[in-house]
């Protein structure tokens, strides 16, 4: 089957759509990654506190989000959340909250893992010279733990960035949904989805390379 590739046909005249799609993707990716990081720090700290009434709900949250598909979460948050909490949330916000919580559950594990990877001996040495818990965290544990958290966090952020494409199922006009609209208009799915894939690659490749450099610097 012969196909006449024509990328101009899906781009010229649609620049405004694509630009908007790109911006929506970037905003969702940044927003959900930053939001997830905040959740990760808070819940990760909570897990370290060793109080069952704090750790139990966090474990439930983490496992719920880790063990259900993110696509199911997005759709559930879009349809069910506004009904459950009896607040009339716009769909884009409900879906965004879902994605943020998904990122948050992995960030929680990354944060906790980074902290507990610091050798117990250093904790006791810090306590033995008279540091309080916050002093120990600030001066001894976090500076080392954060360096170990960065590579897995970059990795998870890349996954999260790609997951924003799933938002198209609830009609959030990101790059993927924009592609769907352009296909409907031009009947050129090959060019459109090739272009979309290429755009994701161009955005993410530098991030993975940056992550590699950070890892190399850590190993030095």
């Amino acid at each position: 089957m012969e196909h006449n590739w024509d990328f101009y046909a899906v781009f010229i005249g649609y620049e405004g759509w694509w630009l908007k799609g790109l911006l929506v993707t970037l905003v969702y990716a940044t927003g959900t990654v930053v939001g997830g990081l905040v959740i990760g720090v808070v819940c990760g700290m909570g897990l370290l506190a060793n109080r069952w009434w704090l750790t139990a709900p966090i474990h439930v949250y983490v496992e719920l989000f880790r063990c259900t598909p993110v696509l199911v979460q997005i759709i559930w948050f879009f349809f069910a959340l506004p009904i459950v909490i009896q607040v009339d949330l716009p769909g884009w916000l409900a879906a965004g909250i879902g994605l943020t919580l998904y990122m948050g559950c992995f960030a929680t594990e990354i944060f906790r893992g980074g902290i507990i990877s610091i050798d117990k001996g250093q904790w006791q040495a810090a306590r033995a010279i008279g540091m309080t818990y916050p002093e120990m965290m600030q001066h001894i544990i976090l500076p080392q733990a954060i360096r170990r958290m960065v590579p897995p966090f970059v990795n998870q952020s890349v996954i999260q960035f790609k997951n924003t494409a799933l938002l198209y199922v609830v009609a959030v006009p990101d790059m993927m949904y924009t592609g769907y609209l352009v296909v409907a208009d031009t009947y050129r799915p090959l060019e459109v989805y090739t272009g979309v894939a290429f755009a994701y690659f161009l955005l993410l490749y530098p991030i993975t390379q940056w992550g590699k450099r950070l890892e190399a610097r850590r190993d030095r």
Binding site: A126, R127, I129, Y133
Partner: peptide, 24 residues
């Protein structure tokens, strides 16, 4: 507890089997 526990500990100096220096 908390700060007063930490300051109580500082009355002692302790050296450990595995040295436990701050690696960074």
């Amino acid at each position: 507890t908390g700060r007063s526990l930490a300051r109580f500990r500082a009355r002692f100096g302790m050296v450990f089997q595995q040295f436990d220096l701050f690696a960074h």
